[in-house]
Design a binder for these strands. Structure first.
Length: 725
RNA sequence: GCGGAUGUGGCGUAAUUGGCAGCCGCGCCAGACUUAGGAUCUGGUGCCGAAAGGCGUGGGGGUUCGAGUCCCUUCAUCCGCACCA
C-alpha cells in the first residue's frame, strides 16, 4: 500500500538482516540520507552535502551551518578562527542532551572562516558551526535560508547575517516566512512562480545540472526492540565472539530461565543475565533483553485461532477460516505504536506465506483518553532562589492583574497572620528583603488527592512531604481571605509523574462497579478524550436504584404466586411501545458504539415505565437482557430473580417488533419562513397534498399569513410543513 | 512547525443524518415527606423581556423553502510527533 501512494520500500530477506548486518545498515543509511548534493566543490577542496525539503528557497541561502560533529568542521576552519571554533566545539560537546532540549532558544554558533560556493549564483557563502543542527539528521549540514526557516532566521538575527526574502509578502524583519504559499521573488529563474511549481522546477534544474537529486526522505520510528525486563519472550539470538547469530529453528522456543530475583544485575545487565548456566549449546551467551509487550500482542490473534497446535503457531487452514479481526479497539498509543507492529507482523507473515490476509483488522476505533486534572500552587522565587513559601493562586492572580499592589502582596508574604505554619517572623525564611523586580513565581505540582474543591489540604500535603514532625514546619503557606490555598487546574494526560492519577476503587466502593461502568459510558462519545470528573455520577447511581425499584412489585407478585412462570397481566400498548422503542435504539446504538446514548435511552425508558407504573414480566424481563452489556452485575442479579439458573449472557437478545411502535398520527410542526409557529396533529396516512389542504384551511394558518398569499408550501411527510410568505 | 481532532445552556452531552436546537444526567431554584438530609418524590430551569415577542449551536460569509449538520473563510482549544532543515 505504501508503494501505491508513492513510497519506495526497501526489502531485505531475513537471512540478510541477520547475516549481513553492515550491508543492511549501509543500504538503509543511503536511502535515508539521499542528499541533495551541491556536487563537487568548485574550489576543489571539499564539497558539503546538504539536505532540504525546500529547494525552492535555494536563492535565499545566505550562509551554511554545520553540526559541531560534522567531519568537515576541523578541515575547513581557517587558522585565524581555529581557536574560537575549537572552544565552541568543546562547549557544544559538553552541553548535555538535556541542556540542549531545555534551552531551545539559546542560540550559539561560531564562524569557521571558510566559504562555500553557491551552486547557482556562484557567490561565496560563509560557513558556520551551530548546535541547532543535528548531526544525526540528513547530512548534518544545513543550507541556511533565514528568510524561509525560523531557526535559520533566529541564527542570522543573532549573528547579524543577511536575510533575503524569497516569497512575496514576507516580513523578514519580524520572522521567517515558512509558508508554502505565495510567489517566489529574488530567485532568478524561479521568480513569479508559486512555491509548489518552484519546487518542481528547481529539482528538475538541479538534476539536469547534476548538482543533486530529488528524493523522498524516510523517517523511522525508534524501533529499539529489546526490553530490560524479565517478563517477555526471550529473543532467539546468541553471541559468538561478540557477534549475534539467530538460534536454530529446531531449538525454538527458548524458555525463560529461572532467576533468583526479577531485578537487573549489580552491573546493570537485564534480569535474564542473572540466570545461571543459561547458555546456547552450553557455551554461547543468549541475548539478555526480552521482547516488548507488543511483540506478542501483535500476533496472538493468530494463535487464538489454533491454540492447541504444537506443530505451527497457526495452521494455514485455521488462519484461512478465521481470517482477520473484525474489530480492533484501542487507545492512541495503540494507534501509533502497537498497531504499527501488528500490521508489520501481518504483512511479514503474509509475505512468508503463512497467512493470507493483508491487514490484521477490518475496523479500527481509538477510544478517547480519560485525562487527569493536575493541580498547581505558586512557589515564591526571589532572585532565582526558591523559597519554601507557597501562595494561594488567587492572590498571585490578583497581583498579576494589578488588583493588589506589590506592597500589599509583600505584606501578606511577610506578615505571620496570613501564613500558616511557623509564627515567628517568617521574614527569616527570606534570604533578604526583596524588591518587585527580584520576585517571581514558579508553579509547583501538588498531588490531586491533597486537593479538595480546588483548595489544597496543606497540612496533609506538608505531612506527606515531611513525615517527621520536626521538619513539617519548614513550609509556609500564604492563605487567601477565606484561609484557603487555591490551586490552579490544568487538564493533562493522567500520569504518575503529573500527580494527577485518580483511583476508581473508592467509587466502586461507594456506588458499585455497574455505576462506574455506566458512568464512564455516559460521559460522552467513546472516541472523545475528556478530563475525569465525577460530578454526574449520582445521576447514574440514582438511575440504577430506580431501575431496581421498577422490578420490586414484579418480584413480589412472582413470590406470591410461588411460581416463576406465573403470568402477570398482559402488557399494555403503551408499555410495549416503550419496550420496543428501547430495544431498537439500544440495539442500533451498541452497533454504533454509541454507549453514552444507550445509557440515556435506558434512563428515558425507566422514567416512562415508572410513570406507567409498569410491573409486567413481559416488559421487564427483556429489559434485563438489554441492560446486561451496560450493567452486568445488576442484570445477573435480576435475571436470577426471574428464576433463571444460567447467566444472562446466554439469554437471547430481545427482538424488535415494529408493529408496537407505529404511530397512526403525526403532529406536524407548521412553520412560516422556517420559523415554527404551532403544531397540528394529522393522520399519518394523509398524502402531502391532503396535509397541505388541511393545514391551509386552519384558522391559525390564516392568522400567521396576515392576509398574504403564500409563495410556496413545502410538506415533508411525517416531518414538517413550511409555508413561505 | 507537521499530522489528527474538537468548539452547542452554569457543566457532561443529545439531535431520527438537511426538517421543532438543547433529549438524558449534573448543578441550581421552589415544594412535599422528614428531628435531620450527601435519602426519596413533585414542579421549574438556554439567554433577553413584565408580557407579546426577540435572540441563540466559537466569529464572518455562502448554498437552501429550511443549516448545529453542506461549502468557503477565520479564530480558539486539545491530542500525537518534532531543534527532523
Amino acid at each position: 500500500m505504501l508503494e501505491e501512494i508513492g513510497y519506495r520500500l526497501i526489502r531485505f530477506t531475513n537471512d540478510e538482516t541477520i547475516n549481513k548486518t553492515d550491508w543492511v545498515c549501509e543500504e538503509i543509511k543511503s536511502a535515508l540520507n539521499a542528499p541533495l548534493s551541491f556536487g563537487e566543490g568548485s574550489g576543489g577542496e571539499a564539497s558539503i552535502e546538504v539536505f532540504t525539503t525546500r529547494p525552492d528557497t535555494l536563492f535565499g541561502i545566505t550562509f551554511l551551518t554545520l553540526a559541531p560533529e560534522h567531519e568537515l568542521v576541523s578541515k575547513i576552519t581557517t587558522e585565524e578562527n581555529k581557536q574560537q571554533v575549537e572552544a565552541y566545539l568543546n562547549y557544544a560537546k559538553n552541553r548535555s542532551e538535556r541542556e540542549r532540549q531545555a534551552d531551545v532558544k539559546k542560540i550559539t554558533g561560531q564562524f569557521t572562516g571558510a566559504y562555500a560556493i553557491h551552486p547557482f549564483t556562484g557567490k561565496q557563502i560563509p560557513i558556520w558551526v551551530g548546535d541547532y543542527v543535528l548531526a544525526g539528521y540528513g547530512t548534518g549540514a544545513v543550507m541556511a535560508v533565514p528568510g524561509g526557516d525560523q531557526r535559520d532566521w533566529s541564527f542570522a538575527k543573532h549573528f547579524g547575517l543577511p536575510i533575503i526574502p524569497v516569497i512575496e509578502g514576507s516580513d523578514i524583519d519580524k520572522e521567517a516566512n515558512e509558508s508554502k504559499e505565495g510567489k517566489m521573488i529574488n530567485s532568478d529563474f524561479l521568480n513569479g512562480l508559486q512555491v509548489k511549481e518552484a519546487i518542481k522546477k528547481i529539482i528538475a534544474e538541479i538534476e539536469k545540472r547534476g548538482l543533486g537529486k530529488g528524493k523522498i526522505n524516510y523517517r523511522l520510528r525508534d524501533a529499539a526492540f529489546g526490553r530490560q525486563r524479565y517478563w517477555g519472550e526471550p529473543i532467539p539470538i546468541y553471541y559468538k565472539d561478540g557477534i549475534p547469530y539467530g538460534v536454530d529453528e529446531k531449538d525454538l522456543p527458548i524458555v525463560l530461565p529461572e532467576v533468583d530475583k526479577f531485578l537487573p544485575t549489580e552491573d546493570g545487565e537485564p534480569p535474564l543475565a542473572r540466570a545461571k548456566d543459561w547458555k546456547y549449546k552450553g557455551q554461547y551467551d543468549y541475548e539478555s533483553t526480552t521482547m516488548p509487550g507488543w511483540a506478542g500482542s501483535s500476533w496472538y490473534f493468530l494463535r487464538y485461532m489454533d491454540p492447541h497446535n504444537d506443530k505451527e503457531f497457526v495452521s494455514k487452514a485455521a488462519a484461512d477460516y478465521w481470517k482477520d479481526v473484525d474489530f480492533y479497539l484501542g487507545g492512541s498509543e495503540h494507534a501509533t505504536g502497537h498497531l504499527l507492529y501488528v500490521r508489520f507482523w501481518t504483512k511479514f507473515l503474509k509475505d512468508r506465506g503463512f497467512i493470507s490476509i493483508e491487514e490484521p483488522a477490518k475496523k479500527l476505533v481509538n477510544q478517547g483518553m480519560i485525562q487527569g486534572v493536575s493541580r498547581f500552587i505558586c512557589q515564591l522565587v526571589i532572585s532565582g532562589v526558591y523559597h519554601q513559601i507557597f501562595l494561594s493562586v488567587d492572590i498571585v492572580n490578583s497581583y498579576l492583574h494589578k488588583e493588589i499592589s506589590f506592597d500589599s502582596l509583600k505584606e501578606k508574604i511577610v506578615n505571620p497572620t496570613t501564613i500558616k505554619g511557623w509564627t515567628i517572623l517568617p521574614i527569616i525564611f527570606l534570604a533578604k528583603d526583596f524588591t518587585e523586580e527580584e520576585m517571581s513565581f514558579s508553579m509547583q505540582r501538588v498531588p490531586v488527592d491533597f486537593v479538595d474543591n480546588a483548595n489544597l489540604d496543606y497540612e496533609k500535603w506538608n505531612k506527606s512531604r515531611w513525615p517527621q514532625d520536626s521538619q513539617a514546619e519548614f513550609y509556609r503557606f500564604v492563605l487567601n481571605e477565606k484561609g484557603d490555598i487555591v490551586t490552579l487546574a490544568e487538564v493533562e494526560k493522567m500520569s504518575k509523574s503529573k500527580y494527577n492519577v485518580v483511583n476508581p476503587d473508592e467509587l466502586v466502593e461507594k456506588y458499585g462497579a455497574d455505576t462506574l461502568r455506566m458512568y464512564e459510558m455516559f460521559l460522552g462519545p467513546l472516541e472523545q478524550s475528556k478530563p475525569w470528573n465525577t460530578n454526574g455520577i449520582t445521576g447514574v447511581s440514582g438511575f440504577l436504584k430506580k431501575f431496581w425499584r421498577l422490578y420490586e412489585p414484579c418480584f413480589a407478585a412472582i413470590k406470591d404466586s410461588d411460581n416463576f412462570l406465573y403470568p402477570l397481566p398482559e402488557a399494555s400498548k403503551a408499555e410495549l411501545k416503550v419496550l420496543h422503542k428501547t430495544i431498537k435504539k439500544i440495539t442500533d446504538d451498541i452497533e454504533k458504539l454509541s454507549f453514552n446514548t444507550c445509557v440515556s435511552t435506558f434512563m428515558i425508558c425507566v422514567n416512562e415505565l415508572t410513570d406507567l407504573k409498569c410491573n409486567k414480566r413481559e416488559i421487564l424481563e427483556p429489559l434485563v437482557v438489554l441492560i446486561a452489556p451496560l450493567a452486568p452485575h445488576i442484570a445477573e442479579e435480576l435475571w436470577n430473580k426471574f428464576g433463571h439458573t444460567e447467566s444472562v449472557t446466554f439469554a437471547k437478545w430481545p427482538e424488535y417488533k415494529e408493529e408496537h411502535t407505529v404511530e397512526n398520527s403525526f403532529s406536524y410542526p407548521v412553520s412560516f419562513n422556517g420559523k415554527t409557529r404551532f403544531f397540528h396533529e394529522l393522520d399519518s396516512v394523509l398524502s402531502k397534498e391532503d396535509v397541505e389542504k388541511e393545514v391551509m384551511a386552519l384558522e391559525q394558518t390564516q392568522k400567521y399569513l396576515e392576509g398574504k398569499q403564500p409563495k410556496k408550501v413545502i410538506v415533508v411527510h411525517k416531518k414538517i410543513v413550511n409555508i413561505v410568505v
